[in-house]
Simulated scan of single mutants.
Amino acid sequence: MAAGGTGGHMFPAQSLAEHMLRQGWRVKLSTDARGARYTGGFPHSTQIEQIASASFARGGIAAKLMAPLRIAAGTLAATWRMLRERPDVVIGFGGYPTIPALAAAWILRIPRAVHEQNGVLGRVNRLFAKHVDAVACGTWPTDLPEGVQGHYVGNPVRAAVAERAGAGYIPPGDYPISILVIGGSQGARILSDVVPPAIASLPMEILRNIRVAHQARGEDLERVGRYYAEHDIDADVQEFFRDVPRRMSEAQLVISRAGASSIADIAMIGRPSILIPYGAAAGDHQTANAQGLKEAGAAIIVPESRLDHTALAQQIETVMTHPEGAGQMARAALKCAVPDATQALAELIETIAQKGEG
Rank of each mutant, 00 (worst) to 15 (best):
R164D: 09
L108F: 05
V27R: 01
D174P: 07
E295D: 12
D232R: 14
A258Y: 06
A103E: 07
A167P: 03
N125I: 06
G173M: 11
V194D: 05
R306M: 08
G218T: 14
G119R: 10
V244L: 10
P203L: 05
E304W: 13
T79E: 05
S201C: 14
I91A: 06
Y278W: 15
V254D: 00
V237A: 03
L180F: 15
G154P: 00
L121S: 02
E295K: 11
G154Q: 02
P197C: 08
L253N: 13
Q14F: 05
T287R: 13
S192W: 05
L207K: 15
P197W: 10
A113N: 04
Q14K: 13
G358W: 00
P87T: 01
G327C: 09
P171H: 09
S53E: 04
V195M: 12
A36R: 02
E146C: 00
R189G: 05
K355S: 02
V212Y: 14
P43Q: 04
H231G: 01
G259E: 10
P87W: 09
V338T: 13
I177Q: 13
V153M: 07
P203C: 09
A105C: 01
P323V: 07
V194Q: 13
N125V: 07
A77S: 14
I99E: 02
Q149H: 02
V237K: 07
E49I: 14
E230A: 07
A198G: 04
L16G: 06
A134W: 01
V153S: 09
P145G: 06
S15K: 08
A17I: 12
V338C: 10
I48A: 01
I352P: 01
P111Q: 07
R126W: 03
Q291M: 14
H285L: 14
E163Y: 00
P141Y: 00
Q14R: 12
P141E: 12
G218Y: 03
I182M: 15
A326K: 12
I182D: 03
R242D: 14
R58F: 04
I179V: 15
V120Y: 11
V89A: 11
H151T: 11
V161W: 03
S53K: 04
E219Y: 08
S261M: 15
L121A: 01
S30R: 00
I255S: 06
E347N: 09
P87N: 06
A134R: 03
V194E: 08
D88F: 02
T79G: 09
I349Y: 01
H19D: 15
I349S: 00
A162R: 08
V135W: 07
A341I: 13
Q291A: 12
S30I: 14
G183F: 13
Y96H: 09
P12M: 08
R126Y: 07
T31M: 05
L102F: 00
A298K: 03
G138W: 14
A105G: 00
L29C: 10
G74Y: 06
Y228P: 15
G35C: 10
L221Q: 10
K335N: 06
A129T: 00
A105I: 07
A160T: 13
A57M: 12
Q117F: 12
A341Y: 03
A333W: 01
Q315V: 10
V194S: 03
G356R: 10
